[in-house]
Simulated assay, not measured.
Amino acid sequence: MTDPNALDDVLAPERRQKARGHDAARTAITSQITDRRLPGAILLHGPMGIGKATFAFELAAAILTATGDEPAHRVEEQVAALSHPNIFLLRRRPKDAKSYYTVIRVEDIRSLRDSLHHTRGRAGHRVAIIDSIDDCNPSAANALLKTLEEPPADTSFLLVSHRPGQLL
């Protein structure tokens, strides 16, 4: 079963190496990573299809490389395979073998929150990517808001939004 947002002949965001554009945001966030002044959450917003999710995975790899103990190429491979133990991805979940839920549910947010409170898989920060936060139902959005207000230590949230004006 493919991702409901997948486009034919286009690699999934986690499989791409670098997002096009986003140069000003890249420079600003890279300097924060270098200075070890990472915010608890970063909202990546704009129209659908401009590479926000790809950029989120690029940033995740940069954060994991800068704060961890593995070489960049190894981290990038693990991020592309979604196998790095310090990266967490939250998207709409499969409902059954043929369909997906239409929203990110509060149970999904609670599961993410609980996972972030376990011992780290490796040295360095943990990164949680929510793609897209617009898919959260109201209960899930409230649960996420509570987590963002008091994030776990050394954890960065990368929030992808197509309609930031409609967020809580």
Rank of each mutant, 00 (worst) to 15 (best):
V103E: 15
L168W: 03
H73P: 02
A62K: 14
P71V: 10
V10M: 14
P94Q: 15
R91N: 08
N5L: 15
R122V: 00
D9N: 15
E70C: 03
E150M: 11
E76G: 03
D69V: 03
A28C: 02
G121W: 04
A72P: 02
K98I: 00
Q17P: 00
R16V: 10
A6D: 10
L168Q: 03
P13K: 10
R15I: 00
A62S: 14
G68K: 07
D3N: 15
L90E: 01
H118F: 12
G40F: 06
R91D: 01
T54Y: 05
T67C: 01
T54E: 06
D135L: 12
A97S: 14
P138L: 10
R120Y: 13
I87S: 01
A41T: 07
Q32D: 12
S139K: 02
R92G: 01
S132G: 07
N5I: 06
I33G: 01
A41R: 09
A80E: 07
A6L: 13
L44D: 05
S99L: 00
E149W: 08
S83W: 04
R163H: 14
L148R: 09
Q17M: 00
E77I: 00
L112W: 12
T65K: 07
D114G: 03
A123I: 11
R92C: 06
H84V: 01
Q32V: 03
R113N: 13
S111K: 11
A143R: 04
L59F: 02
L7M: 11
V79A: 11
R91Q: 14
A128C: 10
P85C: 07
H118S: 04
F55Y: 14
M48E: 15
Y100R: 05
H45E: 14
L158D: 04
R74L: 07
A61Y: 00
K52L: 07
A12L: 15
L44A: 12
T147N: 12
E14V: 02
R20G: 12
R105L: 06
A56Q: 07
K95F: 09
E76H: 09
T30F: 06
P85S: 06
P4G: 11
C136H: 11
R105C: 00
N142I: 13
A60S: 09
L38E: 04
A141H: 11
P4V: 08
I63D: 00
L7K: 15
T54D: 05
I63K: 02
R120Q: 13
S31H: 15
A72K: 13
I133M: 14
P94K: 15
A97C: 01
V10P: 12
A61E: 01
R110G: 04
D35S: 15
D134Q: 07
D3Q: 08
V79G: 13
F88H: 15
P138Q: 10
A28V: 05
S139H: 09
L167V: 10
A141N: 05
